[in-house]
Simulated scan of single mutants.
Amino acid sequence: MPFKDRTDAGCQLARALAAYRDQRPVILALPRGGVTVAAEIASVLAAPLDLVLVRKIGVPQQPELAMGAVVDGGAPLIVRNEDVIALANVSETEFKAVCDSELAEIERRRTLYLGNRERVDVAGRTAIIIDDGIATGATIRAALRATRLRKPAKLVLAVPVAPPDIIDQLRSEADDIVCLEEHALFGAIGYYYADFRQVLDQTVIDTLKRFPPQLRPKSKQPVA
C-alpha cells in the first residue's frame, strides 16, 4: 500500500508541497476524509486550515455514480455531468431532488463543523485544495471552480492518489496539481491505504479547533 493512513498521506504530500510554505498558502480540505490529510499539510506549511463543503450529486438508482456536484456558497455552485444525466435518463425533477438533499447535508455539516467560525479569505493568496484521493473527479472539479470564484492568486490541487486521465482533465481547472500516485487501473481510493477507516464528524471538529482562523499554527518540520 502506498499510504499507511490519511496522516501518512498528509505527511508525504506536505513534503511535496514544501515550496509553497513562503507563499502564504491557505489549505482547503474536503470533509471528511480530506481533513485528516490537510491537517498535516497545514502544520508543515504553517498555514490556516478551512473547508470546502462540496457534495456529489449521485444518480438516484446508483448513488455512487456522480451526475454532478454542488458546493456551498452564497449562491451554491452546481456542476452537472450531462453525459451521465442523459445516460441514466434522469429528469430535471429527479436531479433537483437529489441536489436539494445534498444541499441540506452541506448545511448540516456547515453548522456542525464551522458554527460561527470565521472563514479564511483566500483572495490574493495561494489556495491549496486537499482530498484523500480522486475517483471520478466530480466533487473536486466543483470545489476547484467554486474556489476560483473567490479569486486566489494561485489555485493548487494536491491529492495522494488519482487516475491519470482524471488528473489530465483537471489541469484546466487548477494552476498546479500535485498527485503522489497515479494509477491507470484505478480501484476504490481505499485500496491505496492500509487503514482507510471512516473519518468521524467529531474528528473534523477537533481538527479544526487545532487551527484557529486568526492564528498561524506552529510549524511542524517535515519528516525527511
Rank of each mutant, 00 (worst) to 15 (best):
Y113V: 12
T93H: 10
E105A: 05
A88E: 11
Y113I: 06
A97C: 00
L103P: 03
L114N: 05
E105Y: 04
L112F: 11
C99T: 07
E102R: 14
E102Q: 15
A88D: 03
E102F: 01
T111I: 05
F95T: 02
R117S: 07
R110V: 08
R108P: 02
L103I: 04
E105C: 06
G115Y: 14
E102K: 15
C99M: 13
A97F: 02
S91Q: 07
E92G: 14
A104Y: 00
S91C: 09
E118S: 11
E94T: 05
V98H: 01
T111V: 09
A104N: 07
C99E: 15
E102D: 03
V98S: 00
C99S: 14
T111L: 08
G115Q: 08
E118N: 06
L87Q: 13
F95P: 03
E102M: 12
V90L: 06
L103A: 06
N89S: 13
E105P: 01
E94L: 05
N89G: 10
E92N: 11
E102W: 01
R108K: 15
K96C: 03
E102N: 04
R117I: 06
A104E: 13
D100R: 09
R109T: 07
L103M: 15
E107F: 00
E105W: 05
C99L: 08
E118L: 10
K96E: 15
R109V: 07
N116V: 05
T111H: 14
L112N: 06
E105N: 04
C99I: 00
L87G: 01
D100I: 02
T111C: 08
L112Q: 14
I106K: 01
V90M: 10
N89L: 07
T111W: 02
L112A: 13
R108M: 04
E94D: 12
E105D: 11
A104F: 01
E107D: 13
A104Q: 10
D100S: 14
R108G: 01
E107S: 08
G115C: 09
S101D: 15
E94C: 04
Y113C: 09
E118G: 05
N89F: 02
L87A: 14
E92A: 13
R109A: 05
E92Q: 14
K96S: 13
E118I: 09
L114K: 07
A88N: 11
N89A: 14
T93V: 13
E92W: 04
R117L: 10
A88H: 12
R117P: 05
L112M: 12
L112H: 08
E102S: 02
S91M: 03
F95L: 14
E94V: 01
E107W: 00
V90P: 02
K96F: 01
G115W: 10
T111K: 12
G115T: 09
N89R: 15
L103N: 01
R109M: 12
N89P: 00
A104S: 12
L103C: 11
R117F: 08
N116I: 03
S91N: 06
T93P: 00
E107I: 00
D100G: 01
N116Y: 03
K96I: 03
T93W: 03
C99G: 00
V98Q: 13
A104M: 07
E107V: 05
R109W: 11
R110Y: 07
L87M: 09
G115L: 08
L87C: 00
T111Q: 13
R110T: 09
E105M: 04
R117D: 08
A97R: 15
T93Q: 13
